[in-house]
Design a protein around this nucleic acid. Structure first.
Length: 598
DNA sequence: ATAGGGTTAG
């Protein structure tokens, strides 16, 4: 492979290049390395220019463009040599700190600016606010103080400061504050729109994101590639396939498909909206694919239950000379755990650090707990969490709790729920799992104990909700809708449906119903009006025969609904694609893509 | 010398 030879020192000789020796800075645009910069700097010393603030600022700016440890050290050295820096110099140095991911230093520098009696200007705030944003919620206080200073110096309405303010609040987990800043702008530009739309998309508020996306179009403001990313991610959150397709058309029309990131967001949107085929075709048509695009495909195959394809994507990616990142590994480990490939999963987990130098994060450990737990290696999973180098989250224990539940291990489940309660006792779902486990073991006193505990602590279970999009309208159904109200056409249709299912061998699994003191018939009705059954029945009634039914559920699919969906796909010859909170289930011809392993 | 960014366990 040919490498670009580094420029020989002589090339910087002013006589050979006939360069104005009084202006060594004219060499800066051609400068490509820190070594060359130091040579230019040598000239500035010769010509007594190194005390010129403007010159030093330019040298420092060069060092901070693509910061490395040595270039930042050099910038610091240059900065320290100046006795009376001006605002511009402070700004440049501060931006360097922000870029080199040392946000705290950037903020300390701002304090120096104020103490020196200098005035911050419109260049001062963007990088400082970005520093706060990069630290997340823990920097909200600092961010608010900077906001106050921006107001004090009359810069809060500046066209460059506004979007960073919005972004800072959004990244520091206060999207509503971000919105208040946005709403005060009289004529928001597309960057401010992007900042707030992205904030909503990232905090799982897709409806607000999309309504601002519509507002932007009504105002005839031209969206950018960044707008497309957030709009697509909102569709992905909602599972809104039709809207996603519309945005895809829009992207093609305005040529946003030349951006790799937009294509990656399209892959993710199609995968999350249940159309794996479309995701694959976007990927196949991409001319340039980066690590992120490959990762999106690994995740897509994994969540659709095609573990082996996810793994082969990973192998092909390596052949394409791209290195996996932490997200690629999440997808890969996820694929292994949902396909039951325990040994492979462990091997990949260890190779992360040993071969690729990626330190496993809390989510990777989560995958490992799931992997071992599903395989019934519950004690190993428990030990893994207990010996974690990082503080476990309740989610990690909850993963193990659901493994205990599927393996019927009440003893361990009781230990695990204690560990969960140490961290969070407000999650109704945990009590329900325990109480159901106790019911299955016939331990009715324990059932009452956990039910009472849940009531006393005011812990609530999120109600199950399933939605289905038909002709651009999203219909939502809640679990138990109609159990106590007058029956409608939908309920009558569902009653008929259950009769038909029973004829082909369906037996309602009432052991999954939580309310222990109900009569069996009552339990069966509760089960019958589960949100996913209501949504599927609605889809059967309102779409032409043979159409695929796509349902999105907010929780994990219930076991009884899963059996029912398999039978429905068989007797009505319909494909049903159900997205639950963690994965996809493709029902076809009486079978599910998850192989009943979820 | 100035802004906004997709993929993330259950």
């Amino acid at each position: 492979m040919a490498t670009t030879p580094s420029l020989p020192i002589t090339q910087f000789s002013p006589t050979k290049l006939r360069i104005d020796t009084t202006n060594p800075l004219s060499l800066l645009p051609k400068c490509t390395s820190l070594r060359e910069l130091k040579q230019i700097q040598a000239f500035t010393i010769k010509t007594h220019l190194l005390n010129d603030l403007n010159v030093v600022t330019k040298l420092i700016n060069f060092c901070t463009q693509h910061p490395t440890t040595s270039s930042m050290d050099h910038a610091q050295h240059l900065f320290d040599g100046i006795s009376e820096p001006d605002t511009a110099l402070f700004n440049t140095m501060g931006r360097g700190y922000s870029r080199s991911k040392t946000p705290f230093r950037a903020i300390c520098l701002f304090v120096q600016v104020l103490n020196s009696g200098l005035f911050p200007d419109d260049y001062t705030f963007p990088s400082l606010l970005k520093s706060c944003a990069s630290m997340g919620a823990k920097a909200l206080q600092e961010g608010k103080q900077l906001h106050c200073f921006a107001i004090k110096f009359g810069l809060n309405n500046n066209v460059y400061v506004c979007p960073t303010l919005i972004n800072m609040y959004a990244e520091c987990n206060d999207v509503d504050a971000a919105r208040r800043v946005f709403d005060k702008i009289s004529e928001p530009c597309v960057v401010s729109y992007n900042a707030i739309i992205t904030g909503y998309a990232r905090t799982s508020r897709p409806n607000e994101a999309l309504s601002l996306f519509r507002e932007l179009q009504e105002r005839n403001i031209k969206p950018t590639d960044v707008t497309m990313l957030s709009a697509l991610s909102s569709c992905a959150l909602l599972g809104a396939l039709d809207l996603g397709k519309w945005i895809h058309e829009y992207i093609k029309k305005y040529r946003f498909d030349k951006y790799v990131k937009v294509n990656t967001a399209l892959i993710d949107m199609y995968a999350k909206c249940g159309s794996l085929d479309d995701a694959v075709s976007i990927f196949n048509n991409m001319s340039v694919r980066d690590t992120q695009a490959w990762s999106a495909m690994v995740v897509a195959y994994a969540t659709h239950g095609q573990g082996y394809k996810a793994i082969s994507m990973f192998e092909e990616m390596k052949k394409a000379q791209l290195s996996p990142d932490e997200i690629t590994f999440l997808g890969l480990l996820y694929a292994c755990s949902h396909t039951g490939l325990v040994e492979e999963g462990c091997r990949y987990f260890y190779s992360m650090r040993d071969k690729y130098g990626i330190i496993p994060g809390i989510k990777h450990y989560g995958c490992m707990v799931d992997l071992l737990g599903r395989a019934g290696r519950l004690d190993e999973a428990y030990r893994l969490i207990d010996e974690l180098p990082i503080t476990p989250t309740p989610i990690l224990w909850r993963t193990l709790l659901s493994a205990c539940s599927s393996h019927g291990n009440l003893e361990l489940a009781k230990q695990v729920i204690e560990r969960i309660f140490e961290l969070d006792n407000s999650h109704g779902g945990d009590y329900v799992i325990l109480s159901n486990l106790c019911a299955r073991a016939g331990s009715w006193e324990d059932v009452d104990f956990f039910r009472k505990l849940m009531r006393d602590r005011g812990a609530v279970k999120v109600p199950g909700c399933s939605s289905i999009e038909i002709n651009n309208v999203v219909h939502e159904f809640f679990s138990g809708d109609g159990v106590h109200s007058v029956s409608t056409d939908l309920h009558r249709a569902l009653d008929e449906l259950v009769k038909e299912l029973k004829m082909v061998g369906y037996v309602p699994d009432t052991s999954l119903v939580y309310h222990g003191d109900m009569e069996d018939e009552e339990k069966e009705i509760t089960l019958r009006y589960h949100s996913e059954k209501l949504a599927i029945a609605f889809g059967l009634l309102n779409t032409p025969p043979g159409t695929t039914i796509r349902v999105v559920k907010n929780l994990r699919v219930c076991g009884d609904c899963h059996s029912a969906a398999k039978l429905i796909s068989l007797i009505f010859d319909r494909q049903i694609i159900l997205r639950d909170v963690q994965r996809f289930h493709h029902f076809k011809g009486g079978k599910c893509s998850c192989g009943d392993f979820w």
